[in-house]
């Protein structure tokens, strides 16, 4: 790898690490409940009804929780994808990949904040 470490590098590593922990602890149960249990009819579909979710979203704690759940793992994924793409042969893009990956995570952050605090 022929790139110099940017001074923001520790920040991205930190976010990678935080996101890794949050994804490890929280993502599997969310996938199971919302992606499998409700669609397969294992639990009451009303749990994901419009009325219930919009009511839950009135609670600021729920919004903060969703921010943590959605934002940190984006940085985790961005970091891993950045290095993995370089490792499977895109060395030539080593300078562009961080911009694309972390840029995507930053964009995702803005979208989450906008949806939760402006649209709701």
């Amino acid at each position: 790898m022929n790139y110099k470490e940017h001074k923001s590098e520790p920040f991205w590593w930190g976010m990678f690490s935080q996101g890794g922990v949050i994804a490890a602890l929280l993502i599997p149960i969310h996938i199971f409940l919302c992606g499998l249990a409700v669609p397969l009819g294992l639990i009451d579909p009303e749990l994901l009804s419009y009325e219930r979710i919009t009511a839950l979203l009135q609670n600021p704690l729920v919004k903060v929780y969703l921010c943590v759940l959605l934002i940190f793992p984006l940085y985790h994924a961005a970091h891993r994808i950045r290095f993995t793409l370089a490792e499977i042969g895109l060395h030539s893009l080593a300078k562009v990949l961080p911009v694309l990956c972390y840029g995507g995570a930053l964009l995702g952050t803005a979208v989450v904040l906008y949806i939760l605090w402006v649209l709701f």
Binding site: I27, L70, L74, H76, R80, G108, V112
Partner: peptide, 12 residues
């Protein structure tokens, strides 16, 4: 991490 990202994007 790709699947974590896909799930998060779908959630958003």
């Amino acid at each position: 991490s790709v699947f974590v990202a896909l799930y998060v994007v779908l959630f958003i």
